[in-house]
Simulated scan of single mutants.
Amino acid sequence: MQALADRCPAEDGRAEFERAGMYDSMGFETEAGAEYERTLELGLNHDRHAQLPVQYGSTLPSLGRLDEAIAVLQAAPMHATTGSAPRVGLSLALHSAGRKDEALRVAIEAQIDALPRYQRSMHNYAAALTESATSDESAKR
């Protein structure tokens, strides 16, 4: 992969993006993070740009950068190539950050459109997970 990426004639960040994915798959998160950051500087085509936040956002927690992971995944665009992956990744990052009710809400909401029925009910149940936490915080003030 390294040799192929080195020969990539692209003027955008495709080679860096592919290298980052390779490092991620091998468990070298520090190297992957650096390559994702170079990719961000260089830019990507539309399809790969949609994949970048999912991959980079899932690497950042391994680097101890949970707040950045959450921000990257919250800003991730909706795209056919990624489906609900950004939202599922966000739920995992939120869970790692100890925001478990919010994580569960995001995970449920990510799947609501795929449900053949009960969408409104599931949306309401998911919303209640964090609405009670918000009410509890307001009551403490």
Results as ranks from 00 to 15, higher is better:
G33Q: 09
G21V: 00
I70A: 13
L63N: 12
G57I: 00
T39C: 07
F17K: 03
E29L: 09
A34D: 13
G64P: 11
T81G: 08
A50E: 08
Y36S: 04
R48Y: 11
Y56I: 06
S96T: 10
G57N: 06
T82C: 10
P86C: 08
P61V: 08
H79M: 09
T39W: 00
L42K: 15
A34Q: 14
S84T: 10
Y36G: 02
G57M: 03
H49S: 14
L42F: 05
D24Y: 12
L60I: 09
T81N: 12
M26N: 11
E18L: 11
G21C: 10
P77T: 09
M26L: 14
F17N: 02
Y56R: 10
L60M: 11
M22Y: 12
D47V: 13
R38Q: 14
S91L: 11
R19W: 07
Q74V: 06
S84W: 00
Q55R: 15
F28M: 12
V54Q: 02
P86D: 06
V72F: 04
A85H: 03
L92A: 15
T81A: 15
T30F: 13
F28I: 05
L73M: 06
L60N: 01
A76C: 07
H95M: 12
G27C: 06
A20T: 02
A75F: 03
A50K: 08
E68C: 11
G57F: 01
L73K: 00
G57R: 00
Q74S: 12
R87G: 06
G27K: 09
R19A: 13
G33P: 15
L42D: 11
L92R: 15
L66N: 13
G33N: 09
H79Q: 12
S25M: 07
A85V: 00
G83S: 10
L92D: 07
A76W: 00
